[in-house]
Design a protein around this nucleic acid. Structure first.
Length: 392
RNA sequence: GCUCCCUUCGUCUAGAGGCCUAGGACGGAGCCCUCUCAAGGCUUAAACACCGGUUCGAAUCCGGUAGGGAGCGCCA
């Protein structure tokens, strides 16, 4: 594997005098650090093995990189501009452990060099590692890559992101009902912007993104805005594709979807009242299975002696409709309203409870259209029996 | 502690010395629309961390202060 390569480069540095063996024990190093801390200095290796010529018997040495002892190392960062470090602040880092294994700061340099990496873009928590890496590149006679350090993303409370905050894995977002385009759009606007534009297609992201427009300061996640973006894509996306996604969430709820063709219609009907597919699925169960029971309050208010006449009238009108379309259904309801001298709400709401079991649904006409005549009539029938029973 | 980074509405941000009476978006508030819930439309509250400079003029440039963050391993 690559270990041989790392060893090879380390030997090369050793031979050139740009690295050296260090025989200090862990205890010795710990004491050194403690002393420095006590003197309020920055803890760092003091280079005591730099000029050692003889090995220490019985001690397996580590290899340390010989940092420049004077001058400055400047990082030409694409987002932060030039960052200057005094070389005296940098100590001689270990590039190979006593067991011969290489360390992180050394392996990344060798890898970047071998792979001819041109740009290193990473979180700004790596800024402090950069001058060390640059110095190793120089010692190797290689021009360092371009660096760009992006700001960190913080949790909603402004604290550092951890397993407790935000989603751990991107797949969690799907389970929570988010669309990939919404997540991407949300993320791209964190630390980056293009004027006042908020909505970006993938193509636009590709075309418009420029590292020069990236901000320097960390940003906190705003769950509400992610939700808003998700709904935006639910409202504007392709209904067929979105229907498939809704089906996936319905399945997770244990709902059997007999007719997948209904899915796209349900998405269109629910798009403006659902921020996630998880919510949409929960609110759409009744399209695919009759409600187990009515919400007690909703039934008490809407399925009773008072609403019975309207329920019966609507059932008759719907049963006689020539065509089952939202506009015809709407006309039938209006007919009932006119005949009984009621407000539309006094008719629509009982019907809504009858078919959905609750008080919330898309407009009643499109709800019934999607549900179909058979299911609608059956549920109205059941609701009427419920109202009669409650009455008597 | 030392080194480095950061600082415009609650949040994401626009802003490259006069175009700023600081703009947009999410969220909030109010009104309208309305068969429920939403969505939508309109209106509205809300910020240049602080102190000094430079300049005719500073959110923008410089210095300091304060606050926040990261790094300081034989971890990655």
């Amino acid at each position: 594997q690559r270990f041989d390569r790392y060893r090879e480069v380390a030997q090369q540095l050793l031979a050139a005098g740009q690295a050296y063996h260090c025989y200090c024990s862990k205890q010795e190093l710990a004491d050194m650090r403690a002393g420095q801390m006590a003197r309020k200095e920055k803890p760092r290796y003091d280079g005591r093995c730099r000029h050692r010529t003889e090995p220490v018997p019985g001690v397996a040495p580590v290899i340390r990189f010989r940092n420049p002892e004077s001058g400055q190392t400047v990082v030409h960062d694409q987002v932060h501009g030039d960052i200057v470090f005094e070389n005296t602040e940098l100590d001689d880092l270990i590039i190979a452990r006593s067991d011969g294994n290489p360390t992180y700061n050394f392996t990344v340099v060798v890898d970047d060099m071998d792979m001819r990496i041109t740009h290193v873009i990473r979180g700004d928590d790596h800024i402090n590692n950069t001058p060390r890496q640059i110095n190793i590149f120089r010692a190797l006679g290689v021009e360092p890559p371009q660096y760009a350090h992006l700001p960190m993303i913080l949790g909603p409370d402004g604290a550092k992101l951890s397993k407790r905050h935000g989603a751990v894995s991107v797949m969690q977002y799907r389970e929570d009902g988010f669309l990939p385009e919404a997540v991407l759009n949300y993320l791209v606007r964190l630390g980056w912007s293009h004027g006042d534009q908020e909505i970006f297609s993938r193509e636009e992201m590709l075309a418009l993104f420029d590292i020069a427009d990236v901000n320097k300061s960390a940003s906190a996640i705003n769950p509400d805005k992610l939700l808003w973006l998700n709904q935006h894509y639910i409202k504007t996306g392709d209904a067929a594709r979105l229907g498939t996604e809704l089906g996936w969430h319905l399945e997770r709820l244990g709902v059997r979807v007999a007719d997948p063709a209904q899915l796209a219609a349900v998405v269109r009907a629910q798009a403006e009242r659902a921020k996630t597919f998880k919510d949409m699925a929960a609110a759409s169960r009744f399209f695919f299975e009759a409600p187990q029971e009515y919400e007690p309050q909703a039934a008490a208010k809407n399925l009773n002696a008072e609403t019975l006449p309207a329920l019966r009238d609507v059932r008759e009108r719907l049963a006689q409709l020539a065509t089952w379309s939202a506009s015809d259904i709407h006309a039938a309801l209006e007919g009932c309203v006119a005949a009984l001298g009621l407000k539309l709400g006094k008719v629509a709401q009982p019907v809504r409870v009858a078919v959905s079991g609750g008080t919330v649904s898309p407009p009643i006409d499109v709800t019934l259209e999607i549900l179909g005549r058979d299911a609608t009539l059956a549920r109205l029938e059941r609701a009427i029996r419920h109202a009669e029973a409650g009455n008597g």
